[in-house]
């Protein structure tokens, strides 16, 4: 029942259409639906679960808000002092009224509690057997993605297929981070010594913005990533490509010169390029050229950005563990060419 994404999108919600339209209009006019990181247009089953309950609570909240604020405004206007000497009736209470306004909130909360508990259990069941496992590892200040069953290790860009369950197993090697792609649903903390899990099925292909959501030190603001939802075919192709060893650039090309810079420099101490180096501290760069974002998701993968990063990473990411490489310009250009060639 939960499996077909198209069915899910056309299934009517429990909310009357007019209400949805009004809420949508209000939200749209505030630009809330336009943001690439909005939580209000979910693109996965996990996201929809949260969203449905959010809308429900928003309904109740709006009703309560209107009741309270209207009563307050009416009182404020209607009971303005007219005679400074007059002492109004000293009403001390009303048992029936107090009972009513104790019970009504309790009933409303029951209406909220049931779907809440149901959703908690539904979203925390064990992942289905055919789920694609991704180990999401937080580092200061970048995300690593390992696909243990598929033999793929990458960073900054997360690829998952649309329409298939994905089990994200989230952990950290240093401090607490939090993995969050707002359009795909809620977040889970990445805790050293522990593992948390999100199981989701993305609706449709697209690229979604992700950002660390637990303060993790100097460059917490610079710990982002891209979640790329591929069609099943594109995902399979991506996996196949990622499993291959690193491409060797043709001899004499700028990229070949860059490979020498890489191999003889300090890069190999931290970075892994399968077949060339085994660093293990910084991101795996084997297929670096195929990524859309770099440096922990903060920059698009262009030669200019890469050059700036390679020259002096801490300027772009305060506190970065990647030090100033002290390379001259020809070395930088060559290195950039090499890294871009690693598709």
């Amino acid at each position: 029942m939960e499996s077909d994404p198209t069915l899910r999108r056309v299934r009517p919600t429990r909310v009357p259409g007019l209400w949805t339209a009004a809420a949508g209009l209000a939200l749209a006019s505030c630009g809330l639906l336009d943001s690439p990181a909005t939580t209000l247009t979910p693109r996965s089953d996990f996201g929809w679960t949260s969203h449905r309950i959010f809308v429900q609570i928003l309904r109740w909240d709006t009703a309560i808000f209107l009741v309270v604020q209207v009563l307050l405004l009416v009182a404020v206007f209607r009971f303005r002092e007219r005679d400074p000497k007059a002492v109004p009736a000293q009403v001390r209470g009303n048992a029936l009224l107090e009972l009513v306004w104790t019970l009504i909130p309790a009933v409303i909360l029951i209406f909220i509690a049931f779907p809440t508990v149901a959703a908690i259990f539904r979203t925390q069941t064990a992942p289905p057997k055919d789920a694609i496992r991704v180990k999401v590892v937080g580092h200061q200040w970048w995300w690593e993605f390992q696909y243990p069953d598929l033999g793929v290790v990458t960073a900054s860009d997360l690829h998952i297929p649309a329409g298939r369950p994905v089990s994200l197993e989230i952990a950290s090697t240093d401090v607490i981070h939090s993995f969050w792609v707002p359009q795909l649903g809620g977040k889970r903390d990445a805790i050293p010594g522990s593992m948390t899990r999100i199981v989701l099925t993305a609706d449709a292909p697209g690229e979604y913005y992700g950002q660390c959501a637990e303060f993790c030190g100097a460059s917490h603001a610079n710990m982002r990533h891209l979640a790329v939802v591929d069609t099943p075919e594109a995902f399979a192709a991506w996996v196949a490509k990622q499993r291959e060893p690193a491409l060797t650039p043709p001899d004499g090309s700028p990229a070949a010169a860059g490979r020498e810079v890489y191999r003889t420099g300090t890069c190999v101490g931290c970075h892994t390029v399968r077949g060339v180096s085994a660093g293990g501290i910084g991101p795996d760069l084997t297929h670096f050229g195929s990524r859309k974002t770099i440096a922990g998701g903060i920059l698009p993968n262009t030669p200019e950005n890469l050059a700036r990063w390679v020259r002096h990473a801490p300027a772009l990411k305060p506190g970065s563990l990647m030090p100033d490489q002290k390379l001259d310009e020809p070395e930088v250009t060559a290195l950039v060419a090499y890294l871009q060639s690693l598709r």
Partner: peptide
């Protein structure tokens, strides 16, 4: 009222932090 939203974990997972 926003606190009531935070009290519901499925919603809070979007809103917390």
């Amino acid at each position: 009222l926003s606190g009531i939203m935070h009290a519901s974990p499925p919603v809070d997972l979007q809103q917390t932090d």
